[in-house]
Design a binder for these strands. Structure first.
Lengths: 162, 162
DNA sequence: ATAATATTGCTCAATGATTGAGATAGTTTA
DNA sequence: TAAACTATCTCAATCATTGAGCAATATTAT
């Protein structure tokens, strides 16, 4: 009844189909996170925090701080403190006072957490590589550009939706 | 030092770059979920449950059940019951006993929840459409195929990782 | 300098979602 | 019919999160 879609896989490229694909992807990624958290006696919150701390370490916006986590994870300050206490107690991260502004705490992850993170992302990396292997270099470039564009659009949605 | 990558956006299509893109996407989608949940006095769990119930209604695997939610959301049975109590009390879903096997409860979402779900996915749909508008039909087909492949690979990871 | 204001992260009692063991009701197998 | 199994629910205990307030540091104005 809809467009006959001459290309072999074309039936799955309209907006509703994209919505289902993205929702499913979100669920799969969350499930990976939960499984990994359970395996290590941590909570989903802790893993998400670790993910933010990891990405902040490599990004030019500077190292992660408790305030940053509060915004990224939509937690209250008390919850952030508790989360960081858990991660620090388990040896994954350290709190380091900024020397310039001594109110600020920098969050750095220890070598221990580095290997933990590698382990966490290993199934994801395996699945991603399996999917990537089916596409050409040009196609992978297109897909990466799309993902970047989508991320930017989502970020714009909850920063200035008006 | 790495491959010079002649294509304009090629630098962003290797595996580590994909990992960052997918982690960021996951965070953006979760943040949308949390923001929406807060706006409506619900919890992230409730929204995820609603999402599963929605997709189950349209999928051929049959309607959602508490057991299904327990697996999908990695919750215990007590938590599922509490979550469904909240959703039912707020009028979003109904529990319906299966007539064939009267131990089973089918979860259906009410018209009220249908409009709630539309509202929830509206920012996501807007962002997705904004990103989609930048790509050709062929490119969108490629991207959709990739997302489907990735979802299948992720599902395979936590069903039979061995 | 000094006082007033703002910001960062923490403390702690209260709240409430989640856990986990068990109960209940229904189904299937022998 | 009895026994074993399954789906869901109940409920006390646990523990992450909330939210108000505090301590320490930084900034700005006078």
């Amino acid at each position: 009844m809809q467009s006959p879609s001459p290309s072999a896989d074309g039936r799955a490229s309209d907006l509703p189909a994209y919505a289902v694909l993205l929702r499913t992807l979100n669920r799969e990624l969350n499930r990976s996170t939960l499984d990994f958290a359970h395996q290590h006696g941590l909570h989903a919150t802790d893993i998400h925090a670790l993910s933010v701390i990891m990405d902040s370490a490599e990004n030019p916006d500077g190292p992660a701080t408790p305030s940053r986590l509060r915004e990224e994870l939509r937690l209250t300050s008390g919850a952030v403190t508790a989360c960081l206490d858990r991660l620090e107690r388990a040896g994954h991260i350290s709190r380091v006072r900024d020397s310039a502004d001594r109110r600020v705490v920098h969050l750095v992850y220890n070598p221990h957490a580095r290997s933990l993170a590698r382990e966490y992302f290993s199934p994801l990396a395996r699945a991603t590589e399996a999917a990537r292997s089916r596409f050409s270099a040009d196609e992978l470039t297109t897909i990466a550009t799309f993902l970047g564009t989508l991320n930017a659009a989502l970020a714009a949605e909850h920063e200035g939706p008006a």
